[in-house]
């Protein structure tokens, strides 16, 4: 479980920072103290996305092994089963936020907006984990298969690459630049990045929160529909 949530994003963080660190000298790159400051939000969001997907895979495993059928027969609200998983995702996301902020500080990054900004980042990490977890849960309930849910892993990377996670929008190549301008993941990652690289500003943080709640609502709605469909079909 630690591999997709902490180890892989940490490896990518190390690789991106060392491999593309000179990018901050490019004309048009936002003013930052170092490339690590810019990358930390990307690693954190990658982690929460992977965390959400891992939760979805666990749910699919419960469905495959029949454990969720036994839960369905028990006298608890069906939707609370999904919400319980999302609550777990929030906690994992927040822990991941603390971990990556610690990594950032240890390796010389600075949080420009201070303690308040750091707390906001941790809260946004938890919310985004729930948002991605909701979409993954919907997929797990809809397909009921671990392999199908795992099959989304490449899509996670497509979403990340074609967003502003790794590079600023004005320096992305086309068509990534156009896709990133509309990709909700760009808004979320920019919202988390804002307190790291500057004083907190309402614009990017507000857009980030709006995108997070949008993805969360989408995920919960899809989960509800998938759950209803599964209960109707008896499968």
């Amino acid at each position: 479980m630690a591999a997709p949530i902490l180890i892989f994003p940490s490896l990518f963080l190390a690789l991106n920072t060392g491999g593309a660190g000179r990018a901050i000298d490019l004309p048009g790159f936002p003013a930052v103290d170092g490339f690590l400051d810019f990358q930390i939000a990307a690693a954190l969001m990658q982690s929460t996305m992977m965390g959400g997907l891992t939760g979805g895979i666990a749910l699919a495993m419960d469905i495959e092994t029949g454990f969720s059928d036994r839960l369905m027969l028990s006298p608890i609200s069906r939707f609370s089963m999904v919400l319980g998983r999302l609550a777990g995702a929030i906690v994992l996301g927040m822990l991941s936020g603390i971990y990556f902020l610690a990594v950032a500080l240890i390796f010389g990054a600075s949080i420009q907006s201070g303690v308040l900004g750091a707390l906001l980042i941790i809260a946004m990490a938890g919310l985004s984990a729930a948002a991605f977890g909701g979409v993954a849960a919907a997929l797990a309930i809809r397909t009921g298969r671990v392999s199908s849910t795992q099959g989304v892993f490449p899509l996670v990377f497509v979403l990340i690459f074609f967003s502003t996670a790794f590079f600023p929008e004005n320096l992305l190549l086309e068509p990534a630049q156009t896709i990133a301008a509309w990709n909700p993941f760009s808004f979320i990652v920019d919202g988390v990045r804002n307190p790291v690289i500057s004083e907190m500003s309402a614009g990017p943080i507000g857009e980030g929160l709006l995108a997070t709640f949008g993805v969360m609502a989408f995920g919960i709605a899809l989960s509800a529909l998938a759950l209803r469909s599964r209960l109707r079909s008896g499968g």
Binding site: R22, A23, V158, L172
Partner: peptide
């Protein structure tokens, strides 16, 4: 699939590094 996605994705993201 994975190396192909990485190649296309990294080019899209870091393609302007050639300007260094």
């Amino acid at each position: 699939l994975a190396p192909t996605i990485f190649m296309l994705g990294l080019t899209a993201a870091f393609g302007n590094l050639i300007l260094l």
